[in-house]
Amino acid sequence: MDVTNLLQDEAILLDWAVDSKEGCLNALADRLVETGAVADKGAFLDAVLRREAHGSTGVGFGLAIPHGKSSGVVRPGVAFARLKTPLDWGSLDGAPVTLVFLLAVPEAEAGNTHLQLLAQLARKVMDEGVRQRLQQAKEPADVRQALAG
């Protein structure tokens, strides 16, 4: 099993226009509801925003990895957006963000394979080559391939 199992085509948004961090999170959460990963969107978004308040998840390199652990999540899932216009995410390096991964984790999920996969995803995007392929992806399949490779 690899990380792309958690990232379905419906949850991949390419060159997508949005004008705020909240709007971006909201739309990505909608996608996770559609794919069935999230049942209670409100509870899930609460957890995500609480995590953001703790310190921005904008890690630099134009990348943000917001995430939430909540009982509103049914099974682990990932949504991805490449933004048309870069957004300010309060990032560590001050630069705006174009790549956003939203991770959803159920409350009662400890030590299983899905968490390992999310960890793998976090490790992958630290690689510049992977980020470049994400920037150049033309369709959802390219995104999945970049992360699988």
């Binding site: 991770l103 976090a122 490790r123």
Partner: peptide
């Protein structure tokens, strides 16, 4: 990190690289 989902592993990977 507090949630232990993303940053822990990104930091590990960054240091290893």
């Amino acid at each position: 990190c507090p949630t232990g989902i993303a940053h822990t592993y990104m930091a590990a990977e960054a240091l290893l690289k």
